[in-house]
Design a binder for these strands. Sequence first.
DNA 1: CGATCTGTTGACACTGCTCAATAGGAGTGG
DNA 2: CCACTCCTATTGAGCAGTGTCAACAGATCG
Lengths: 262, 262
Amino acid sequence: MFDSHVADDVERGSIAKTITFEKRQDPRSAPDAFSERARCATCLMRNICVAASLEDSDMVRLDSVVQGWRRVRLGERLYRAGDPFRSLYAVRSGSFKTVGTTARGREIVSGFYMAGDSLGMDGVSQEVHSCDAIALEDSVVCVLPFHLLEALCREIKPLQRQLLKMFGAEIVRESQQMMLLGNMSAEQRVAAFLLNISARYRARGYSSTAFVLRMTREDIGSFLGVTLETVSRSLSRFQQEGLLTVQGKSIELLNLDALDAR
Amino acid sequence: MFDSHVADDVERGSIAKTITFEKRQDPRSAPDAFSERARCATCLMRNICVAASLEDSDMVRLDSVVQGWRRVRLGERLYRAGDPFRSLYAVRSGSFKTVGTTARGREIVSGFYMAGDSLGMDGVSQEVHSCDAIALEDSVVCVLPFHLLEALCREIKPLQRQLLKMFGAEIVRESQQMMLLGNMSAEQRVAAFLLNISARYRARGYSSTAFVLRMTREDIGSFLGVTLETVSRSLSRFQQEGLLTVQGKSIELLNLDALDAR
DNA sequence: CGATCTGTTGACACTGCTCAATAGGAGTGG
DNA sequence: CCACTCCTATTGAGCAGTGTCAACAGATCG
């Protein structure tokens, strides 16, 4: 939106000239040269990330695949639809939305991703990304060049299994979202969305009842297949009924069971 | 529905006792003992299946992973939600629908699969299938035990790539379906559905303008997130406008561009 | 401090769902 | 082979949940 087409991956740092050039072009979004190397073993998200279920020795080998981190600031894109696919990304901190574009040019939010989630799988089949990934706050991702990850998967069986499980989990997640979009009322969708976010925060050790929504009502509406007004109204109604309190982007869930019963 | 819980995979044929037992229980759905072995090299679907882009020598090795075929008759289930995940399946002939169940017990069609498509990826992440796969006509699938496929992927790089691409394609397919469900009118959904089927027939060398829909209006409606009446009405309206002719399950598309313009 | 973006709330219209009646087709059994 | 039944598809009428349009209030940011 406000940044032109910029450096897309840390791994291109191997070509020093390119990096320097792109840093001059737009310093804000050029890859930061983090002095530290990735260390999965000490990462808070290691249990839900690519590294999950790896032994220590294998985790060190995965470190060598993670070529570095990339900082993406609020509103910036990690990648765009049409960009050549080179890497998967693991969200270290912050959060993202993915935005697809319909044949008629309408933009639609297809997913939300928080720390520990993986991004970029949309690019594997066509070797080109099929959506934009936009940071919802200042964020940092690990960059995993796909050809290196593939190579390591041929050597480390648990890593191969974990990678396929990640893909499989994305498939299941999306088919559940399809069931939501196809069959639930607007209110049910909003309730299900809140419970989904809640569960994901819990899995990460954060409060599952009080959190801040990083995305706008319009993003939520787009994701849920309803208008932003309907999202707003649903939240207001839930508040009136004492199921939660809303204050802008801050949510506190007061009655998870009642939300679930919607 | 009408068959009890039965033998789920041909590979279990290695345990002769089990097979015999289950054949007695329900002969209709027990795995048939095909005398021929799978031969990807001569399969009509080899270009769009798991075998795509493999060299001849590698295809022979894939044959050894394909432990056999399984016949699934109209209405029978290839697998059920909750079944342990052991194999992926490649549709050799016929077609399937996958049906998920919501928390409230409502059944929803999450996909349609025809010859050359792969089934079962929903089971990878949890090692348990998350939906039912039901034959829409008498069908035959190749059974690919997942652990063997994984092992071969560690040896054959193009096969590894192809497997990941298949997973990636499923992810892209589903996110496109999400965009359809979230943002198109009922009529647009039906039009998009017909064009999707049309394109898939074309890719397989069949007529892209005249075909038979194997599924019911209710299946289509469930998949598209509308009622069966709405599907029926949309088809009637398209017919009135000369975009196609319908006669029960037989469809002839007369104006693809106009359908697309919906 | 104004400008812009985001969120809330109201009024109204319309798409698509529900309920219902009818007809066509496929399969089954006599 | 026909009659019967059940399943599937079509079509109509009325209603309700959501989208659309609009006005306004807060929040954020330079």
